[in-house]
Design a protein around this nucleic acid. Structure first.
Length: 925
RNA sequence: GCGGGGGUUGCCGAGUCAGGAAAAGGCGCAAGGCUUAAGACCUUGUCCCGUAGGGGUCCGAGGGUUCAAAUCCCUCCCCCCGCACCA
């Protein structure tokens, strides 16, 4: 095979597409299709993951364009947030790991890398690289609309958006808990942690038990994850150690030393005013603020002063720990020491939850598991088991008063709210697992960030609208709709302001920056403005609030220095292009960006401009290994294209996996795919001649018919974004048929080549363009995509060819066992047509089988008959002229099998009996 | 734990919704052809048994429904992803 320089072909067509501006759409009478892919974040080079998502998008864009749509496919660059700043700092410091990863995996030459010591230089470098990479792989992007999220004009757009959201009441103030390092005085992200990456922040309900000292309430803030058990509290546990007495928001609280430290990071005002040894309190009584009952304060070693407040309420009926601790205490000398004997005798567990068992649940499980004392490790398991059971199956009993009859699983939030409203409850944030340690070695705490700006995603009305619109949308693959539904319901308010990073300031509160996912929600509309901005017509000073409200929402009058004609043109562009018809993205964005994308569109735009469809695709691994931007391994888009060529890279990534399943990039497979593409190239070049539609042979009709089925399959697959299925059909399966056609002596391959090139051009546009131009002047990229033409389907030709294949394979099978020179062929006896006639009469498979199975003869070979009938019906059974097929192809069969063939009755009786229509008897001698 | 997805031949993966020849297609491997040779290319084979186109096994495990189950129903096991304020 001749060497083909794919890179040269690719560059040639890329520059011609560019020169002829064929991917720069303007509004027209044609129906539009607006497809967007999330813009990449530029803290590195585009990699195989981007390659997958973007190539899927490009294939769809090209497909839709050829299907007659006016397609807009734009791209921008995302640089807002902290990682680029972090990277600049690492480069300044010449951090060895960073230098290694960026030179080795991101392919940035080391000397160049070291100059990228400011965020601006990083953005400039990587945006140039990204642009080259995307051009080099042949994406049909309209580059007139490119932008960067730090552009002044973009910031105007974001400011407008946030004013809008604020006006709608969707930006609110609040506080929220973050993981925080007291030493660095900063919130800590996952990669800043030494330990505890898996720790989450959980909210304990604090219930303000109290006792009185000289007429003043001293609050014992009990922290619990099960506030409903407050109705079953029999006592309070303190560790026999020193506690801190503190003034907390005006109240006097007793908490552990650790808890006091933690409180100083919350939004509460705290001040230490003394120290109390818990021992002084043992035997004294406190009041349960919910039930008003008096309960004793008792010692327990199992109390962890580093967990929440360090004060625990005891519910022996439902908490195995509490039950066992009371039993232990009865036997311990501590009871004697603190004079608790009498008190302990009186303690009776109070059952308040029914999960369908009798007696005291904690006692039952402790006895069942034979737990001896509070040091028994099985206690942990017992607690989990009981908790789980009661959470899922438990119902609250009458002792819980107004909550009686509620399910345990439903109670927590409501009770927490009620308690806080009554002034007897609070929240204490704590890590789910400890310790959580910062890279600097300091133990992290939960810090409550005050007066933070939030996007109010929990707003039920907003949520409701999003959920409702979701039902109208197309989600690909469809099972992701359920995932979206769940995530929308789960979404809580999101802090949308930051102290640090690149981006836009909150226009009414300039000390805050808008968080980087919050500024990337409706920017698809900005692509429409970007064209005018890049032309130099639209400038930041033109972009007043009223201008943006006018062109994007059609509201009011535009007060702007921009000329009216341009304003109107922008408005018309928006009306034409919006809404987004398809947003195609990696699945990592489902639980964040794609949700925000929906929420913000629904908040800001009129319903007719809400997104129509979302598609989700999976990740890419390298030789089975997970990719990592910051650690490697990584394969850049540029390198993939440089080593394999654009079309091979595209074809591979589209074919490697379907939908959200993950694709694996395997060098060997990619290389072998290159040979397929070369074979295709040669095949077309050698056979691309004028075609003869006049005298079609049966074989030609077969080829044309098979191609129609491929066209149908490919179209269907692309409509649902199944690129793997599409490539498999359009490329691989068609190749197999073409090979058979040529082997059978077909001479008229050109019958399908024009359409075949069109069919493949969304996947491998450069090669297709090159081949297409052997006989045409136009761009294949702009041709009309082939459509299924049923009139060209020829079931008879297909059945005949199938018959031939079967016959050859049968003969070969026999020849494995018999060393013969000649094969006699004898056709089936006519009565066997009965089955077929019955089947054809019945029409569909089910009733056919019912009818046929009534006959004992056929029933005996039920399976065979069923298979036979199925096939006959599926292929639109034609009574084949078997004799003619054999006679016409007798030489081909001989050539394929290496034996002589003869139609003859010399086949022995017992073999002739076995013959079926479509399956003649054979006799080899 | 909650939610979503999945378990098919040496590997990747179709087939499951609408039960009816399991294994399309790709990779890998093997044989033959072509070639000075290698590569590429073409052909064939690749669950087991079989000196006549056949038979058997089989779709994570176990039950059930049916003339017929990878597919429908029940029970169980295992794997992946998300659970956030980070792009």
């Amino acid at each position: 095979m001749v060497e083909i320089d794919f890179r040269e072909i690719e560059k040639k067509w890329q520059s011609l597409w560019e020169k002829e501006r064929i991917f720069q759409p303007e509004p027209s009478e044609k129906p539009k299709f607006f497809i967007t892919i999330p813009y990449p974040y530029l803290n590195g080079n585009l990699h195989a993951g981007h390659t997958r998502t973007f190539t899927i998008g490009d294939a769809v864009a090209r497909f839709k364009r050829m299907r007659g749509y006016n397609v807009l496919f734009p791209m921008g660059f995302h640089v807002t947030g902290t990682p680029i700043i972090g990277l600049a700092e690492l480069i300044q410091r010449r951090d060895p790991k960073t230098v290694e990863v960026y030179s080795k995996f991101h392919d940035v030459p080391e000397d160049v890398l070291l100059t990228l010591d400011t965020p601006e230089k990083i953005v400039e470098y990587f945006s140039k690289e990204a642009l080259e990479a995307m051009r080099g792989i042949g994406y049909s992007i309209d580059w007139r609309r490119v932008f960067t999220t730090t552009d002044e004009t973009y910031q105007k757009f974001i400011e407008w958006q946030f004013y809008r959201l604020k006006k709608l009441g969707y930006v609110v103030k609040g506080s929220h808990p973050v993981r925080y390092c007291p030493h660095d005085r900063n919130p800590v992200e996952d990669h800043d942690l030494l330990h505890g990456e898996n720790a989450t922040v959980i909210d304990y309900t604090v219930i303000k038990f109290y006792y009185e000292e000289e007429g003043e309430k001293i609050i014992l803030p009990c922290a619990t994850l099960r506030p409903e058990t407050v109705f079953g509290v029999t006592n309070i546990w303190l560790k026999p150690t020193k506690y801190v007495l503190a003034r907390v928001n005006g109240e006097k609280w007793l908490v552990s030393r650790e808890a006091y430290e933690k409180l100083t990071y919350t939004d509460k005002e705290v001040e230490e005013i003394g120290e109390i040894n818990a021992e002084e309190l043992f035997g004294r009584f406190a009041v349960n603020p919910v039930t008003q009952t008096k309960i004793p304060i008792l010692p327990a070693e199992f109390v962890d002063t580093d967990n929440a407040t360090g004060i625990v309420m005891s519910v022996p009926a439902h908490a195995p720990y509490d039950y066992v601790a009371i039993e232990d205490l009865k036997k311990s000398e501590l009871a004697e020491k603190y004079g608790l004997k009498e008190i302990l005798e009186k303690i009776q567990p109070i059952v308040l939850i029914s999960a369908g068992e009798s007696g005291i649940p904690a006692k039952n499980i402790v006895e069942e598991m034979d737990i001896k004392d509070q040091n028994d490790p099985a206690l942990e398991r017992a607690t989990k088991l009981l908790y789980k059971k009661e959470f899922h199956k438990g119902v609250l009993l009458d002792v819980t008063g107004e909550y009686s009859g509620m399910q345990v699983s439903q109670i927590k939030d409501r009770l927490q709210r009620d308690l806080i409203e009554k002034g007897i409850g609070d929240i204490f944030y704590e890590f789910s697992e400890r310790p959580v340690v910062c890279r600097c070695g300091t133990k992290c705490v939960v810090k409550l960030v005050k007066d933070q700006w939030f996007l109010n995603y929990s707003n039920p009305e907003w949520k409701g609208k999003v959920l409702e619109h979701l039902e109208r949308m197309q989600i690909i693959p469809d099972y992701y709709k359920e995932e979206f539904r769940n995530k929308i319901e789960w979404l809580k308010d999101k802090a949308c302001a930051r102290r640090k990073g690149l981006g836009t300031r909150i226009p009414w509160d300039k000390e805050w920056l808008i968080e980087s996912l919050s500024d990337s929600t409706i920017y698809m509309a900005y692509y429409i403005l970007a064209k005018y901005i890049n032309e130099g017509k639209l400038k930041a000073e033109h972009m007043t609030e009223s201008f943006l409200s006018y062109v994007l929402l059609g509201e009011g009058e535009p007060e702007t220095s921009l000329d009216r004609e341009t304003v109107e043109r922008i408005r018309r562009d928006f009306l034409y292009w919006y809404p987004v018809d398809l947003r195609s993205s990696g699945k990592d964005l489902v639980a964040n960006h794609l949700l925000f994308f929906l929420f913000h569109h629904i908040a800001i735009f009129n319903q007719e401009f809400w997104p129509r469809a979302i598609a989700v695709n999976g990740y890419v691994s390298l030789e089975g290994e997970k990719m990592s931007k910051s650690k490697g391994p990584l394969l850049t888009m540029k390198r993939a294209v440089k080593e394999n060529g654009a079309d091979v890279t595209r074809l591979y990534i589209l074919y490697a996996a379907e939908y959200d399943s993950d694709a694996d990039w395997r060098r060997k497979d990619v290389e072998s795919l290159a040979t397929h593409l070369k074979r295709f190239y040669e095949l077309v070049r050698e056979n691309y001649e004028s075609k003869d539609w006049e005298n079609l042979s049966m074989l030609d009709r077969w080829l044309v018919s098979r191609f129609q089925k491929v066209v149908k399959e490919t179209n269907e697959a692309m409509e649902s974004l199944q690129t793997r299925r599409a490539v498999n059909s359009a490329f691989f399966e068609m190749m197999a048929d073409v090979r058979w056609y040529l082997r059978r002596g077909g001479k008229n391959l050109s019958l399908i080549i024009d359409d075949w090139l069109k069919l493949l051009s969304p996947f491998i546009p450069h090669v297709c363009e090159e081949l297409w131009h052997l006989r045409h002047e136009s761009f294949v990229s702009l041709e009309k995509y082939p459509e299924y033409d049923e009139s060209r389907v020829d079931e008879e030709a297909e059945a005949a060819e199938e018959y031939l294949k079967d016959l050859i394979s049968d003969i070969k099978e026999i020849l494995k066992f018999v060393d013969a020179k000649k094969v006699y062929v004898s056709l089936a006896e006519p009565w066997k047509l009965e089955v077929l006639n019955l089947a054809v009469k019945a029409g569909d498979f089910k009733s056919a089988m019912k009818e046929i199975m009534k006959d004992e003869r056929f029933r005996k070979m039920g399976k065979e008959v069923s298979n036979f009938v199925k096939k006959a019906l599926k292929d639109g059974f034609k009574l084949l002229d078997e004799e003619r097929i054999i006679r016409e192809n007798i030489e081909f069969i001989s050539k394929e099998t290496g034996v002589k063939l003869e139609l003859s009755d010399e086949v022995p009786e017992e073999k002739r009996k076995l013959a079926m229509p479509g399956k003649p008897a054979l006799y080899a001698v």
